[in-house]
């Protein structure tokens, strides 16, 4: 689904005075599409309208839908790429790029993640090839002499 379609659908739903059962189903599906998380029903009857507002605010703020992330953090974990940085990441804003960078810098912190894709630990064929082609320092020194 494109972001334009999501906005259009959200505006339609926002215009409904009373949400029908099918509208509610649409909200649940959109919630997964836009925010990449499952919709949780609560006892509060406004939870569907709240979800619509939450999705609209997210799209308004980031001008896109949340990127699907292949990594997930355990609940109670917050990542900061630099110590004391105002920039921090939870599952709400985690991206593959951020997770990869963090795990590269802090390989011992893998236990903070609940989901790490299998290919994260697979050796990168390009890097491996580059390592094979790159001449060793000894060879370079010998050539200079």
């Amino acid at each position: 689904m494109k972001v334009v379609d999501a906005i259009q659908k959200l505006e339609e739903l926002r215009g409904c005075k009373v949400l029908s059962a099918s509208n509610m189903q649409d909200v649940e599906q959109l919630y997964k599409e836009v925010l990449d998380k499952e919709f949780v029903k609560t006892s509060c009857r406004d939870c569907y309208n709240d979800a619509i507002i939450e999705m609209m605010l997210y799209i308004k703020k980031y001008e896109k839908m949340k990127e699907k992330c292949n990594y997930a953090l355990k609940n109670g974990v917050l990542l900061q790429l630099k110590f004391g940085s105002d920039e921090f990441y939870t599952n709400a804003n985690l991206t593959d790029e951020v997770a990869r960078k963090y795990l590269t810098d802090h390989p011992d912190d893998a236990n903070l993640f609940s989901k790490i894709p299998e290919d994260h630990y697979a050796p990168n064929p390009k890097t491996r090839m580059a390592e094979q082609v790159k001449p060793s320092e000894e060879i370079i020194t010998e050539e200079k002499q």
Binding site: K37, A72, G76, F88, S114
Partner: peptide, 11 residues
């Protein structure tokens, strides 16, 4: 924000 994640749906 960290406390907020404690009650988020688990992934």
């Amino acid at each position: 924000a960290l406390v907020g994640t404690l009650t988020s749906p688990a992934l």
